[in-house]
């Protein structure tokens, strides 16, 4: 497949198909699955920015989502802020949380990054549980105000408004990610990931890139969290749970680290796969074991993920035949 077809035509065809889905999927359940898949796609693709592109083993990414959830819930329900503004504010608070965690993480490596970011997630969860008068504690918050556009309620028309709003968010998030990874900053992230010393020798600040990438990856993750709270009208500490984290991580790894579209495709596929498996007797809980097995298989066979395989095949087709052409000195 030619790069132009893969990078432009195929995504546009997929987008056109997703725009047409509500014409065929007229029940609210199928649309709900798509909405959740879109939100997972935003979480996974933004996580991939820090994990896949920059190699920061950030296991606190779902914390940014949780911060977004509670920001929107508290602003919209407790403070009476317009839900649209509450969703946008979720991106800002998640970015601020990312900045807080980025400072100690910027100079750490490997397992220490995992430990610190995971501990940060637990810390935020304990904060949510302990501040029950604000967050609802273990009970969470319910009956959060829903979205309206003028007189139109998004609860109407079998979630049609929420479907297009979530898809719009996914499109904007993806365009944002494409702009980031194609910029010199985005390329410097791969340099930092693969050869720190060489990157520093070319003027790239390792710690600054790590802080920046964590903050950037949190913006749309937080917005997705805010949208999730307003859409489901619930904020629950479950969002900090290991189940959500491992499912999102499997989307990143199966789809392909270092690609933008891989985790999005995997998020759509895995959301529907887990839902389909839930309908099979005996697999209600065991479905997550199957997802974990799929993740192990993909990592074993294709460490670059499923989209990574396609890119490698593409490159093999375009690779020049001669071993070396440049033989006349630099």
């Amino acid at each position: 497949m030619k790069p132009a077809a893969r990078n432009i035509v195929l995504p546009l065809v997929c987008l056109a198909a997703l725009l047409l889905v509500p014409v065929f999927a007229i029940d609210s359940y199928t649309r709900h699955l798509f909405i959740i898949a879109f939100l997972y796609a935003i979480i996974a693709s933004n996580w991939n920015l820090s994990l896949g592109h920059c190699g920061v083993f950030n296991f606190g990414h779902l914390t940014f989502f949780g911060v977004g959830v509670y920001t929107a819930a508290i602003l919209a329900k407790t403070l009476g802020v317009n839900p649209w503004i509450a969703i946008l504010a979720s991106g800002a608070t998640a970015a601020a949380a990312a900045f807080l965690i980025a400072a100690p993480v910027a100079r750490l490596k490997g397992i220490y990054v995992v430990l610190v970011t995971f501990a940060f997630g637990q810390l935020v969860m304990q904060l949510v549980l302990s501040q029950a008068q604000i967050t609802g504690g273990a009970e969470g918050m319910v009956r959060i105000p829903y979205l309206r556009l003028g007189d139109y309620s998004f609860l109407k028309d079998y979630k049609l408004g929420y479907y297009y709003a979530a898809l719009f968010l996914l499109v904007v998030s993806t365009l944002f990610l494409l702009a980031v990874v194609r910029s010199p900053f985005g390329k410097s992230l791969k340099a930092v990931r693969d050869a720190e010393e060489y990157a520093a020798a070319r003027g790239i600040s390792i710690s600054r890139q790590r802080v920046t990438v964590l903050v950037l990856s949190a913006i749309f993750t937080g917005i997705a969290g805010g949208f999730y709270a307003i859409y489901l009208r619930v904020a629950s500490p479950d969002v900090f749970g290991f189940g959500t984290l491992s499912l999102a991580l499997s989307m990143v790894l199966i789809g392909g680290t270092g690609t933008v579209y891989g985790p999005i495709a995997a998020a759509l596929a895995l959301t529907f796969a887990t839902e389909a498996l839930a309908g099979i007797r005996g697999l209600e809980e065991a479905r997550f074991i199957l997802i974990a097995l799929a993740m192990i298989l993909v990592l074993r066979i294709a460490p670059g993920g499923l989209l990574g395989i396609i890119e490698k095949l593409d490159f093999r087709d375009r690779k020049p035949a001669a071993p070396a052409v440049a033989r006349n000195g630099p």
């Binding site: 010199p184 390329k187 340099a191 003027g203």
Partner: peptide, 8 residues
Amino acid sequence: QISAVYSG
């Protein structure tokens, strides 16, 4: 390109 941007 990134060498020219960041170092240069």
